[in-house]
Simulated assay, not measured.
Amino acid sequence: MKFLLAFQILFVFGVWIAPTLTQNPWDSVARTEQWWVERHQQFLNSTANLGSDIKIVFLGSSIVENWGNEGRPVWEANYAPLGAINYGIGGDRTEHVIWRIDNGELDGLSPKLVVLYIGSNNVPVHPNNDDVVRGVNTVVDRLHAKLPNTNILLVGTFPRADQSDVPGTLRRIRDINGKLEVLVGGDAQRKGNFIDLFWFLAPSSLDGIYEHLYVGDKLHLNLDGYTMWHREMNAIFNSLLQ
């Protein structure tokens, strides 16, 4: 009877209204796009073929992936010579990176450092800040479980002005970053570290971003943005390689 009532509620004027199910940010979820599956396989191949040559892993979403595009000159000059590899995939959220960690991308590696940037794509999808924080923190947990001797450097979410409510989005990101800094920064047990570059990319008024550091979509960094990232991360980055 309850099922029938639910069916009647969801079936209105002959149109089926499908319930929407959003995955939790701390779940392990694969994406189904063929190009994504192929990219994951490429990473598996890199892990298998390069093995001990991989000293640093940059892991995350398109902001990481674009070290190979807008940020490529900085990458080639500063990170490639150190044995760094780029495991960024555009559009990934925390749940997708958790799945990638669970499914072989880091198996058998022993890098000195993982630079992690993830969670930005959860902000528009998951309205509860604590859920996003839990998702990012779960990624750190999975990384430490997989690579117990590796330092983890979590980069706080960058400002983004591609949403309709820019001030509201920026305030949410500040809240998320603040909570993650408490959880991950200086976490000796998980070898966790945190760096927040937010104020290099947005003013204290929280009414916009420094657009000269972004490409036209107001979400992704341009070369100047990646140059800033490298410059400001350099001290903690080098200390974690010792």
Rank of each mutant, 00 (worst) to 15 (best):
G91P: 06
V64N: 05
E38L: 14
R72K: 12
V37E: 15
W99R: 06
E95I: 13
N86Y: 01
E70Q: 15
P73G: 06
G83M: 07
P73R: 02
R72Y: 02
E65C: 14
L82P: 02
I89Y: 06
L82T: 00
G88M: 02
Y79D: 01
R100Q: 04
I56D: 04
Q42I: 11
E76N: 09
G71W: 03
S46I: 08
I54P: 04
I63G: 15
P81E: 03
I63W: 13
L50M: 15
L59E: 00
D53K: 12
Q41D: 10
V57Q: 15
I85V: 15
Y87N: 01
V74C: 01
F58M: 00
E76A: 08
N66W: 13
N49K: 14
H40P: 04
I98K: 10
I89D: 04
A77W: 01
H40V: 00
W99I: 05
R39N: 06
V57A: 13
P81V: 04
H40I: 00
N45F: 04
I98R: 15
R93S: 10
D92L: 06
H96L: 06
G71P: 06
Q41H: 15
T47P: 04
Q41V: 09
G51N: 15
T47E: 02
E70M: 14
F58D: 00
V97P: 08
I98P: 11
G91S: 07
F43D: 03
E38I: 10
L82W: 00
G60R: 00
R39Y: 06
G88K: 05
L50T: 10
L44Y: 07
K55E: 13
L82M: 08
V74P: 00
H96G: 06
A84P: 07
R39M: 06
F58Q: 02
A77I: 03
V37W: 09
L44S: 09
I56W: 01
F43K: 08
A80G: 04
Y87G: 02
L82D: 02
S61I: 09
G71S: 08
A48L: 10
R72E: 05
